[in-house]
Design a protein around this nucleic acid. Structure first.
Length: 872
RNA sequence: UGGCGCGUAGCUCAGGGGUUAGAGCACUACCUUGACACGGUAGGGGUCGGUGGUUCGAUUCCACUCGCGCCAACCA
């Protein structure tokens, strides 16, 4: 083995090996218990970013863990067609390369380009998944627009339509003039803009004065059909029912009363534009006001806006309206004003609320079921607090606008009869109108919101609506891991869809992973330039280091601040493991194999105990999605217990060790490799090949990725030895090293040592070699003397013979400091014990612990006092 | 405006009603010893944001408060 782990060559080699060995493919006929998870399908437009790296790492940790535990573990991969995002990208390309719009090339040709672009990109993201080590079943990969998945979409649409869950109708929606499509409420973002508040005079029709309305969008006044005041506002009560003359037009509009008006804001008078504002729209309908559309889908003024304004862009029109009002002296005042503007989450364009014909889905019934499933615990959230957010959103849920004016996506399976206008909604294109029988039908040009197909993902990937074997075996899936930012977009919709169409939840557990931020906790963004690219990171530190960092920081509910230093630490950890393996390998003879029954001494029994305890904890941690805890436990198991303690002790015995003694350390390494594999698959597989491959018992899989989780290894059941011995050895060792350091003695200087703890005699050689001592003896009584440095440890004392090297002042100061600290602690312990309310009310165990602690301190203090008495 | 989360070592973060609060990195001193300098040893460093309460005992639970962040919102 090389001196350091060369991850660059190892990574690709092992993934290929795993894939060709078909280790990641589901085994429906294996008789194993199924365990399944579906990937949150990444966008085909995107590259792997750090958020993906985190989610997919956690997926893989869990999947490899479950596979090792003996489950038929299936992780279904796939990608998402990402309607708007993809269309925008390809449209831009078309513009740049040929200077054409999608309308220039036509729908068919444009879709062809989209598909070929998709075919190119899908491979890229798949290879990035491979680089990450993702143990997905490639034979079951899906794309959200695969024919099967499209069939599921059509089936759901048609069935929901016939049940009345889906309907078409005019409603106010958020229109994105840049992408030329409707958006759902969830795709709208509100950003703060510094605008103005224009106060405009609307003259009363009878010429007796005017009312003043305030607005942030003066151009919409051209579509005003009323002015509203609060019914109890005394200032305006007399105006209700009268008309005002709408400036710049020849219309008269009424003053109406409605309690939605806030009398304390602005002038207390609100202009009503039912065609261009959601509130005004609602108010308009309540009050029976007409709706006049003055801004079109192209964000330009319509003919309704009047000849002076028709054709102007809405923002150009704003300037002209303001100018014209000023000329008429109808502008009361203009105030600077900061307010929230709705923009498209995707294109960034300022949205225009417009009334238009769209398809909607009723979700009240499904939402109710989704609420129940979390309330009753059928679905469990980690962290649990998201249940509150879930509750709030689903209780207030609105019908979902599912149609998009895009070409890329699932086309709505609705055909309008050219003859009678009847809308035929069918799974497959009907040959004739269901109403009049005419055969000329036109399919709805719109496509469905991308999330419509994503919602079906947990069962459409298994072939639904066919009752496939996969569907029966792997649905519901075991767990969903995804970001909380798509709780509503995706998670809620999958749950609703699952409950509606499968009559069962799509998953039992939902784990919301955190956001990955930069090292100062700031969101990564291209404009800030603080993006850490996972691919570059994998090149520099190794995939394992990236995976380990992300896992170790994945504390539920806490965002991850990723830094170079963290990645370095993980890389160092992988290297530590590598070198420990290297040591094992160098100590091995050819005849030492995993089939050899190990011989256990004190150190081995202790190591077995550490493995047993840590693996138990790590297993529970992973099962409960406390990934960070598992990583930390295994980190310390490897570094502190195995490397720092066990290997150091083993060095003494391994030189001339027997086959059985050497088999012990081989087994330990084997167990560690299996435990670490889900977190750091490449380095462990590489070590496994170098050290274990030739030493496996018959019938054991050759690849580590196929081997069992080590918790049930028979070796872990071995009991024996004195479990307290190694920790006491560590304490004695540490005290000896400290004595050397405190007295300024070269660590390499070999001096005689003494230890009063007889039980540590078996470790004499260990002490001698690790602390580099001349000799170690275990005298019956006293160890101190004028030329010796002495330290108190629990249960005894250790001393070094330092003739001529001793620094008495330093040692005395150290003892004084220790004494002072101990006295303080002892005093407070005794005070607690003297307090009757403590001894009577506190649990017995706490009191007993306090007593034992006090006794220990007392005895330590006594010894220190002894030493101080003779120190001069 | 409402809801949620966070404030613990220089930095990034774990933790949790019970003696003396942890990790990684950074820092100081020393060490090239045959797994590893991507290493080792010994250290320094925190009144756990503030105030008050519950309790035998609070960094942990509760209330209030200050600071930061996120989400949801119809104030034109």
């Amino acid at each position: 083995m090389d001196k350091a782990f060369d991850f660059k060559t190892a990574q690709q080699r092992w993934y290929e090996r795993w894939e060709t060995s078909r280790l990641f493919e589901a085994q429906p006929d294996s008789g194993k218990k199924p365990w399944s998870i579906v990937i949150p399908p990444p966008n085909i437009t995107g590259n792997l970013h750090m958020g993906h790296a985190l989610v997919f790492t956690l997926h893989d940790v869990l999947t490899r863990f479950k596979r090792a535990q003996g489950f038929d573990a299936l992780w279904v991969p796939g990608v998402d067609h990402a309607g708007i995002a993809t269309q925008v990208v390809v449209e831009r390309q078309l513009k740049e390369s040929e200077g054409k719009s999608r309308h220039d090339v036509g729908r068919e040709a444009f879709l062809e380009r989209l598909w070929s672009w998709k075919d190119q990109n899908q491979g890229a993201i798949e290879n990035q998944l491979r680089r990450l080590g993702a143990s997905v079943d490639w034979t079951r990969k899906r794309f959200t627009m695969d024919p099967d998945l499209n069939r599921a979409v059509r089936k759901v649409f048609a069935a929901a339509y016939k049940e009345g869950r889906i309907y078409k109708g005019p409603r106010m929606i958020q229109w994105d003039p840049a992408s030329q499509t409707a958006l759902s409420d969830l795709e709208v973002k509100y950003v703060e803009r510094h605008g103005k508040l224009w106060h405009i005079r609307y003259p009363l029709a009878d010429g007796s004065g005017f009312v003043v309305v305030a607005t942030t969008r003066p151009e919409t006044m051209l579509g005003d059909t009323g002015v509203a005041v609060h019914p109890e506002d005394e200032r305006y009560g007399h105006l209700v029912g009268r008309n005002v003359k709408l400036p710049l037009t020849d219309r008269e509009i009424p003053v109406v009363a409605d309690s939605f008006v806030d009398p304390t804001f602005g002038t207390g008078c609100v202009k009503l534009t039912p065609a261009h504002d959601p509130n005004d729209n609602a108010a308009g309908r309540r009050l029976g006001l007409p709706s006049i559309t003055v801004i079109g889908f192209d964000a330009k003024m319509t003919a309704e806006a009047g000849p002076a304004y028709a054709g102007l862009d809405r923002f150009e029109c704003r300037k002209k309206v303001v100018h014209d009002l000023e000329a008429l002296e109808l502008m009361e005042k203009i105030e600077p004003y900061t307010h929230q503007v709705s923009v498209s989450d995707r294109s960034g364009a300022v949205l225009e609320p417009l009334v238009s014909e769209q398809w909607f889905m009723k979700v009240d019934e499904a939402a109710q079921k989704a609420l129940e499933s979390v309330r009753t615990g059928r679905i469990k959230f980690t962290p649990e607090r998201w249940a509150g957010v879930w509750e709030h959103w689903l209780v207030n849920i609105q019908d979902w606008c599912i149609s998009r004016q895009l070409w890329w996506g699932h086309r709505i399976p609705a055909w309008t009869c050219d003859a009678c206008g009847h809308i035929n909604v069918e799974e497959d294109a009907p040959a004739a109108c269901g109403k009049c029988g005419a055969t000329t039908l036109t399919q709805d040009p719109d496509t469905l919101d991308t999330w419509f197909s994503s919602a079906l993902w947990p069962f459409s990937v298994f072939g639904w609506p066919d009752q496939t074997d996969d569907l029966k075996r792997y649905y519901p899936t075991s767990v969903l891991i995804t970001g909380y930012d798509i709780l509503f977009f995706w998670v809620a919709r999958m749950v609703m869809a699952g409950l509606t169409w499968m009559d069962d939840v799509p998953f039992r557990d939902v784990y919301f992973n955190a956001l990955v931020r930069d090292e100062h906790g700031a969101k990564m963004s291209k404009s800030k330039g603080n993006v850490i690219d996972p691919l570059e990171t994998m090149d520099e530190f190794g995939t394992d280091a990236l995976r380990f960092s992300l896992t170790a920081m994945a504390a539920p509910g806490t965002d991850i601040s990723l830094s170079r230093s963290r990645l370095e630490a993980s890389r160092n950890f992988c290297n530590k493991l590598w070198n420990a393996a290297r040591f094992v390998q160098m100590s091995m003879d050819a005849d030492v194999t995993l089939a050899v029954e190990p011989e256990l001494g004190e150190a081995e029994y202790w190591m077995v105990g550490r493995l047993r305890e840590s693996l138990g904890q790590a297993t529970r941690a992973i099962e409960e999605y406390r990934f960070h805890e598992a990583a930390e436990i295994l980190y310390h198991l490897v570094w502190d217990d195995f490397c720092a303690t066990y290997i150091e002790l083993a060095k003494v015995t391994l030189q001339q060790g027997t086959r059985a003694q050497k088999a012990a350390i081989l087994h330990f390494l084997d167990i560690l490799l299996r435990a670490l594999h889900p977190l750091v698959p490449f380095v462990t597989e590489e070590i496994h090949a170098a050290v274990m491959a030739d030493r496996l018992p018959a019938g054991e899989p050759e690849l580590l990725a196929a081997r069992a989780w080590p918790l049930d290894d028979p070796l872990l059941k071995a009991q024996g030895g004195d479990p307290g011995l190694v920790p006491r050895f560590q304490e004695a060792l540490s005290a000896i090293l400290r004595l050397k350091a405190e007295n300024g003695v070269d660590p390499a200087k070999r001096v005689p040592a003494f230890c009063t703890i007889k039980a540590l005699e078996p470790f004499a050689e260990g002490l001698k070699s690790i602390a580099r001592l001349e000799s170690v003896v275990f005298p019956e009584g006293d160890v101190h003397g004028a030329t010796r440095a002495v330290a108190v440890v629990s249960g005894g004392m250790v001393a070094l013979e330092l003739a001529g090297l001793k620094d008495p002042a330093a040692e005395k100061a150290k003892l004084e400091k220790e004494k002072e600290k101990l006295e303080k602690e002892l005093e407070s312990s005794l005070a607690r014990l003297a307090d009757e309310s403590f001894t009577t009310k506190a649990p017995e165990a706490a009191v007993a612990k306090m007593r034992a602690g006090a006794a220990e301190k007392r005895s330590r203090l006594d010894k220190i006092n002894e030493l101080l008495a003779v120190a001069n």
